[in-house]
């Protein structure tokens, strides 16, 4: 029960996670490893390609729809299995999936992100994989994305939400 009480409020962070004390030091390496596998998939399936994103928005290739669609189906089945079988974390805790509340930001912000997605050919994940793949100039895109995030944070209470 103590673990559950440690849950943070949803408005503190967009990706609230149960903060667990054993996630310290070397325990964090597992996230690095999952990230590495993920980054390899991004490059090997050419998801980091600007051309793939153009094909998607021009409806000229099924590829990205296949990737995102099958990722959602896999995630959906996994979450249903976790819920129905009561699968716990490796530390024996109940798995907790935070609810996302509807805000106007999902419409306005989502639309703004979409504009940027088509221009850069990257959502935030592929940005990191592009830099790692040697497209070093994408570091500038990354810095600008940090700036965009910062400006949102600065004015978030003045924007419709």
């Amino acid at each position: 029960m103590k673990v559950l009480e440690k849950k943070i409020k949803a408005d503190v962070c967009d990706a609230p996670n149960s903060r667990i004390d054993h996630d310290k030091g070397h325990e964090l390496i597992k996230y690095l490893i999952i990230g590495v596998v993920f980054g390899i998939v991004f490059v090997k399936a050419e998801i980091i390609s600007w051309f793939r994103i153009q094909e998607m928005f021009r409806l000229q290739s099924f590829f990205m729809y296949g990737v995102i669609g099958s990722a959602i189906v896999t995630g959906l089945i996994s979450i249903q299995l976790i819920k129905r079988l009561g699968i716990k974390t490796i530390h024996g805790e109940a798995i907790n999936i935070p609810t996302k509340e509807f805000k106007k930001g999902q419409i306005i912000g989502g639309f703004i992100f979409g504009l940027g997605w088509a221009l850069t050919g990257a959502c935030p994940g592929p940005l990191f994989a592009q830099i790692g793949s040697g497209f070093t100039v994408i570091f500038i895109t990354f810095l600008s994305a940090i700036a965009g995030t910062w400006v949102y944070g600065k004015f978030s209470d003045k924007l419709p939400n």
Binding site: D14, G116, G125, A147, S156
Partner: peptide, 19 residues
């Protein structure tokens, strides 16, 4: 780079998430 990256950073945070 600059405008594109900014839209990605600003938009995803405003939307509360990305892809």
């Amino acid at each position: 780079f600059v405008v594109g990256g900014f839209l990605v950073g600003f938009g995803t945070r405003y939307a509360g998430g990305c892809t």
